[in-house]
Each structure stands twice: as C-alpha cells, then as structure tokens.
Simulated scan of single mutants.
Amino acid sequence: MSEFKDKVVLITGGAAGLGKCLAENFAKEDAKIVLVDINHDKLEETKAALNLGDRCITVSADVSKESEIIKYVEKAKQHFGKIDIFCNNAGIVINQQIKETDEASLDKIWGINMKGFYLGMKHVILAMEENGGGAIVNTGSVDSYSAAIGNALYTSSKYAVLAMTRCAALEEADKGIRVNLVCPGPINTDLMRDFEKRKNPDNPQAIIDSFSSQIPLGRYAEPQDVVNAILFLASEKASYITGTKIVVDGGWTHE
C-alpha cells in the first residue's frame, strides 16, 4: 500500500509542467488531490486526465492575492477535511537587469514568487496545525542560492523562498510540520520554452544548447527528475529532514 494513499495533497501551479507531473504521480499513489492554478481551462484538462472523480478538486486562484489563497485552503478543508502535503509550486520567470526593471514587473514576480509562497505557507500551516502536522515542499531553484546577469527579479524571489523555508521549518518543527525546498536547474517544461524564446527569439535552441553544455549530465531535467525529489521530501522516508534543500540540477552548480 502506498504511504500517500488517502493523503490530501495540495498543489499550486497544478495545471501544467512540474505541477501536472506531481499530480500524476500522487494520483498513482492513491492520494486525494487539490489542484490550484490561475489557468482554469488547463486546470480542468489536467483534472479530467487524472480521472480521479471526486478524489480530485480544482480551484482557480491568483496566488498573489491572500483572499484567493484563503479560498483554495478553505475549499481543500471543506472537501477533504484536512491538508497533509503542500507542494508550493506556482511561479513565473521575468528576466531584466536591475536598471531595466519597471515597477509592474517587480510587483508581478514578487507577488507570485514571494507573496504567493509566503501566504500560501501561512494559511496551509494554520490548517496543518489543526490536523496535527504535515509536509510542505517549496519549489525553489538553483537561483535560490546563485546569481546571473539579468536575473535579479527571479533570483531575489527564489532567495526569499529559501529564507521562508528555513524560518518556517524552525517555527513549525514542534507542531509536526516539516518544510523543505527543492532546487531545480533548467527543466523541460513550457516555462523554459517561454524563457528560451524570450532570450533568443531567432534561435531558442541555442539557449538549450548553451545550458546543456554547462550541465555535467549534459541535459535539462525532465519533470519526473524533480518530482522524484519532491515525493521523497513529502514522504515518511524524509521524516527527520526539515529546513533543508535538495538540488536537482545535473551537477550544474555543484551545490
């Protein structure tokens, strides 16, 4: 029997990419799933593909708004009665040098990647405390501890997620709530396709080739590579692990 059987798993950014892969894996493990995303149509497509019936619900939400976060937490509790595992995953990428950054870009990326993660943890932690514990896995990045030209917006938001993870782990350890971080490098998802096109509209393959040449294992991660680490951190196999990070980058940063 799977250790995730009947566990209630809440996944933000659950409509596509890493979030969708997470949902597929937890579905195979007989979990109950709450999928959250701003894209309603893709959210419903993912739910239909999972074919879980009332063991999966969807919540369309903008994670940069606290009222929307409260909504997805309350719907999870109303439908399933609890939250056991939180995959705090929704995020965006904006690449601008500091001198080029406009306030709208700053508000957008910090709203989703910082405020969304922070307030997501706040309200899920309150729900988990009511239930006697749980596991939170935040999606960070190799940019949670490194730097690159033109990456200040994204990097600052992901550094913040690392800090939030460590603080929350300390605050909630005696409540039975573990909080950890997974830090991927480039992943074969639509998010990276969009990034590659923005960086080099005429030849996005050149971006793929450049990144891949810097990765000792010679390729991007597949979503499953990262999901494997998240499943571990969410499981009882990691019951003595909190406040730390697992880097999934093919050896790129040697962290």
Rank of each mutant, 00 (worst) to 15 (best):
E24V: 04
F211E: 09
Y118F: 15
I69M: 10
A127S: 14
D190T: 13
A27S: 15
C56S: 08
S64D: 06
C87H: 12
S105Y: 03
D225N: 12
L10N: 05
N88P: 00
Y72V: 02
I207D: 01
T139Q: 11
A49C: 06
R219S: 12
I57C: 09
I215H: 12
D190Q: 13
V137Q: 08
A221I: 07
A168F: 04
D6F: 01
K115E: 06
K245H: 07
A135P: 03
A168N: 05
K77R: 10
A127I: 09
N228G: 10
G17C: 09
N25L: 03
A160C: 13
G116W: 04
M164I: 14
L233T: 00
S239V: 07
G185F: 01
P223W: 10
E130P: 07
C21K: 15
F195G: 00
G185W: 00
E100V: 01
W110V: 06
V8E: 02
Q97E: 13
T101F: 04
S105G: 13
V161E: 11
I149L: 10
R55A: 11
D107F: 07
R178A: 02
F4C: 01
S105K: 14
V34N: 02
D30V: 04
P184S: 03
V179D: 00
Y118N: 06
T58K: 10
T139I: 14
S64E: 08
K42A: 07
A238S: 14
S144F: 02
E74G: 12
K47P: 08
K175H: 13
I38D: 00
F211G: 02
G140H: 04
N228L: 03
E255V: 08
A27M: 08
K20Y: 06
A163Q: 12
A16R: 15
E100S: 14
K32Y: 05
K5V: 07
I69A: 07
D194Q: 11
S141Y: 03
A23P: 09
E3W: 02
N131Y: 06
V36T: 00
A127W: 04
D37N: 04
A27Q: 08
A61N: 11
M114Y: 12
G13W: 08
P186D: 01
T12W: 09
Q97W: 05
E44H: 12
A31Q: 07
V59I: 15
G132E: 07
L22M: 13
V248N: 02
E44F: 11
K115W: 07
I98Q: 11
W252I: 04
Q96V: 03
D37S: 05
I57W: 08
F26Q: 11
G53F: 09
A76P: 05
C183V: 00
V93D: 03
L106Y: 15
A234F: 00
I57L: 12
A27G: 14
L35H: 01
T244W: 03
E255N: 13
Q214M: 15
I208L: 09
A76E: 05
